[in-house]
Each structure stands twice: as structure tokens, then as C-alpha cells.
Design a binder for these strands. Structure first.
Length: 500
DNA sequence: AAAAAAC
């Protein structure tokens, strides 16, 4: 009788060694010092190894990346080729993510877990030169991690063939829907073999997500861990009511007072994020902004500097609310309350991870009261109203000029936000890091693009029930114009694309 | 109302 014998009702804590993973994978895990799987890993790995489709409700920080990539590597290892020939390395595992940063992080994990195996992987995303990605794809890879748009680009250029994909992972599926990726997802799925294993992960379990799961997954096993506000239980939350004109100074005050060395500050707008980062720098706090108007290089440099501790503050839009795996963050600050209450949960989910405690401080103004009520309704708790101790609003009304550019910039803010950028010489000269809109990669100036022309694919909503149509057998790519021009409702897109 | 993602 072994001493590990335990009753069925109380199974022993599983270990990675219990899953029957290949020795090469186990070696990679011990390289990283991992022995005990997280709850989602313990649930997902055996199910995926059985070949079942999975609908996983899990936030980032629960370890879901390993939850799908470990069994994926194991499955693909079964027919792994050691040949150098690209033809012997068809893409068999495909992982789709909503943001570029998330794609990079997932790819880093996959590379680490597969390092002792002959499997090759690469990451493919927009904002970067196609060429290195093309070369990697042409050399032959078993696993591709991609954002949808760039992947389709590569497919159209025949850099990659998805006709042999056995496993598809849709990470942060809810986010992909929010971002209007459904048509792209549909087009990608039409390129895959009908017989394949599908894994879908989502932080939320909305009706739309269920519909998506119904149309893309076959008899899925549902795995659910840590409901969305469970994360918040370990996070101490506090809100401070402040005057609109004091917001930036209050952020600087909070950072100094709590001696924060690693904090993400969330802003609702790109321009607000850039301005706040600049303002903090002027106050002697090392900060960089990360948002969608910065070049990919700038985004990666900011993230890198933050992870290395070279800067104390990462000022981010919701590009970083989900997915970014920045571990051990003791604190996040909301410079703006998010318009979407669910985003609040995602933002504060950056802290209090993996059992650690965390702090989430938010500042809000009179006009944000309703947002605060919505948030409290969602998380089903009242957030402590904090008193700002020791904060002295600077006397700025008497002589604004001695406070420099940023005071003057404030009156420009509304105009700049409305016009989508500084396109009439309103930019403060002091900026050392001009926005990408003003600069080409070669460094010369060019006019800012007219952002107003960007249109959200709002017409893809609302979601309507659908009868899934026959999946198409052909491997051709429907032109995107067919989707854009059609303005078809989501239901129609789920039912298959129009013939080109 | 805003953000993200392909050129």
C-alpha cells in the first residue's frame, strides 16, 4: 500500500509529472521550476490530451497559456519531424490572440516549453516587417502564434498554408469579438481542415461567446475557474474623488506617497496616456506610455523597460488591460475609470495574482459617479472612498506660465482629442518622444493621419441566432472586401462567408 | 465614448 493513496473524494494535488507528458516537456517545466499545475492547468491538460474541444473561462494570470500549450506540444509531438525540410514541418498548431503583445508572450511560453523538442514555432503579428516572419514561416514551423490580420496577410501572400492544422486555440476570445475580429476568425477557420481540435478561452461568458463556442466548437468540455470577481477578493481597492484639473498631480502624489516602483496606470485614451507619461517624467518619475498609436518598437521597448525595472510606471490604455503577463505587480492605478465596468475587473486583475495581495487605486471625478456605480454593481462590493492625505493642489491659477507647457497643454486637450491629434502645431515643443503619427520610420515629419475616418465595425452587432451553414471545403481566401462591403450581421458571418 | 488590429 503506497502512502500516496488517497480517497477518490479528495484527490491528491496533481503534479505536472502526473499527466504523462513527454520527458522533453517535463524537462522544460523543471527548467522553469514548475512542479504544481494551477487549477486551470490541472483541469485543461487531461481534457486536451483526450482530444476534446474545450471552452475555458479563465482570466490571464490563471496559467491558461501553459494549460493549452503544454498539451498542444504533447499532441503535436506524436508526429514530430526532425527533418530540416520545410515540407516536413507543416503548421499543425495555431494560436490566435487579440493583441500583438499577447501573441509575443504566448510565443515565448511555447518556445520555452518546446525547447527540448524538435517542434518549431514562430510568432506573426502586425506593425512589424513582414520579411523575418515570412522567412520563419517558409523554413517550416509546427506552431504559429498570430494576431488574425497579419496571419491572413501571410496566407494571401502564400507564405503559410493552414490546410494541415490539427489544433486551433482562440485565446481571449471575448476580446477578439470586442475588437471586431469575428470576420477574420471566420475566414481563418474556413482555411482549416474540418476535422481538428478547438480550444477557446475567454475571460467572460457572455451570450455572444456562447454563440461563438456553439458555432466553432464540437461538443466542448467547459472548464471554469475563478469567476471574474474572485481575483478582486485579494485586491485592496480604494477610490479617490478629485478635481478634473488635479488628476495628473494626484497620480504623481500617490506614486510618491506609496513609493511605488512598479505600477501600471490605466488611461482611457491614447492621448491621455501619452500626456500623463510625459507629465510624470517632468515630475521626476520614470514613465513610458504604451498604446495603439505608438509604433510596435516603442510598445515593446516600453514593456521591456518596465519588466526590467528601468521605468517605474507604465501608462497604458486598455491594450494592456488584459493578457499582458507582468507578474508580481503590487499595485495598479486607474487614472480614468473605465467606461466598461468589465474592463475595471481586467485592469485590477493585473495585481493580486497567483495568491499574492495587491492594491488598486482609482481616481474619479464628479462626472464619473455613474461609472463607479456600474463598477460596484458588477463586482458586488462597495469600494472604499479614500481620503487623499498630504495632497496639496498646486496653485496654478495665479501664474500658470511658470508651470510650463503641461499647464498650457490642458486647455488644448479637448481640441486635440476631438481632432484626433496635434495636427495644427499644438504639440508642446518639449516632447522628446513624438507620437508615431508625426514621424515616419525614417524620422522625417509627416502629417498626422485623420483618425476620424476610422470606423468601428459596430454593424457587426447585435448578435442574432443562427443556423450554422455547411462549412465550405475549398481553401481559397474570400476577399476581405466581401466582408467589409457586405456589412453583414454577425449571424450571417457565422453561417459562412459569401462566395467570392 | 474608447481602444485594439493589416497594408
Amino acid at each position: 500500500m503506497s502512502d500516496t493513496n488517497t480517497p477518490d473524494t479528495a484527490p491528491a494535488t496533481p503534479r505536472f509529472s502526473d499527466f504523462g507528458l513527454a520527458p522533453e516537456i517535463q524537462r522544460a517545466l523543471s527548467d522553469q521550476g514548475y512542479t504544481i499545475p494551477t487549477p486551470i492547468q490541472a483541469q485543461a491538460i487531461p481534457v486536451v490530451l483526450q482530444g476534446r474541444d474545450v471552452m475555458g473561462a479563465a482570466q490571464t494570470g490563471t496559467g491558461k497559456t501553459a494549460g493549452f500549450s503544454l498539451p498542444m506540444i504533447q499532441q503535436l509531438l506524436a508526429h514530430a519531424s526532425t527533418s530540416m525540410s520545410p515540407a516536413r514541418h507543416p503548421v499543425r498548431g495555431l494560436i490566435l490572440t487579440p493583441t500583438r503583445e499577447l501573441a509575443v508572450q504566448v510565443a515565448e511560453n511555447v518556445a520555452a516549453y518546446s525547447r527540448h523538442t524538435p517542434l518549431r514555432s514562430c510568432v506573426v503579428f502586425g506593425g512589424m516587417d513582414m520579411k523575418p516572419q515570412t522567412e520563419a514561416l517558409r523554413r517550416g514551423v509546427e506552431i504559429v502564434i498570430a494576431t488574425p490580420g497579419r496571419l491572413l496577410d501571410h496566407v494571401e501572400q502564400k507564405n503559410v498554408n493552414l490546410g494541415q492544422v490539427q489544433m486551433l486555440v482562440m485565446d481571449e476570445a471575448d476580446r477578439m469579438l470586442d475588437m471586431g475580429f469575428l470576420p477574420d476568425l471566420q475566414r481563418i477557420i474556413n482555411l482549416l481542415p474540418k476535422k481538428r481540435q478547438n480550444l477557446m478561452f475567454s475571460a467572460t461568458f457572455s451570450g455572444e461567446i456562447k454563440k461563438l463556442a456553439n458555432s466553432f466548437l464540437t461538443d466542448p468540455v467547459t472548464i471554469e475557474v475563478a469567476r471574474s470577481n474572485a481575483t478582486a477578493d485579494r485586491v485592496t481597492q480604494v477610490v479617490y474623488k478629485v478635481g478634473e484639473e488635479d488628476k495628473r498631480d494626484v497620480v504623481a502624489h500617490l506614486i510618491r506617497k506609496h513609493e511605488l516602483k512598479q505600477v501600471i496606470v490605466f488611461s482611457n485614451t491614447k492621448i491621455g496616456a501619452s500626456r500623463l507619461a510625459r507629465s510624470l517624467e517632468q515630475d521626476g518619475i520614470k514613465a513610458l506610455a504604451i498604446h495603439g498609436d505608438r509604433t510596435q518598437q516603442e510598445r515593446m521597448a516600453a514593456l521591456d523597460a518596465f519588466k526590467k525595472g528601468e521605468i517605474e510606471v507604465l501608462v497604458a490604455t486598455d491594450v494592456a488591460a488584459r493578457g499582458l503577463d507582468i507578474s508580481d505587480l503590487p499595485c495598479v492605478i486607474n487614472y480614468d475609470l473605465p467606461y466598461n465596468a468589465e474592463d475595471y475587473v481586467h485592469r485590477i486583475g493585473r495585481t493580486g495574482r497567483a495568491g499574492a495581495s495587491g492594491d488598486a487605486m482609482s481616481i474619479y471625478t464628479d462626472s464619473d459617479e455613474r461609472l463607479l456605480v456600474d463598477i460596484e454593481k458588477l463586482i458586488k462590493q462597495t469600494i472604499t472612498r479614500g481620503q487623499l492625505e498630504g495632497f496639496e493642489p498646486p496653485r496654478r491659477s495665479r501664474d500658470a506660465s511658470d508651470r510650463g507647457e503641461r499647464r498650457r497643454g490642458r486647455s488644448d486637450e479637448v481640441r486635440a482629442d476631438r481632432s484626433g491629434g496635434f495636427d495644427r502645431g499644438e504639440r508642446p515643443e518639449r516632447s522628446e518622444r513624438p507620437d508615431r503619427s508625426e514621424r515616419s520610420d525614417r524620422g522625417e515629419r509627416r502629417p498626422a493621419p485623420l483618425r476620424r475616418e476610422k470606423v468601428d465595425p459596430w454593424f457587426l452587432k447585435p448578435y442574432e441566432p443562427t443556423q450554422p451553414a455547411e462549412p465550405k471545403a475549398e481553401q481559397t481566401v474570400a476577399p476581405r472586401s466581401a466582408i467589409k462591403a457586405g456589412k453583414r450581421p454577425v449571424a450571417a458571418l457565422l453561417g459562412g462567408l459569401p462566395k467570392a
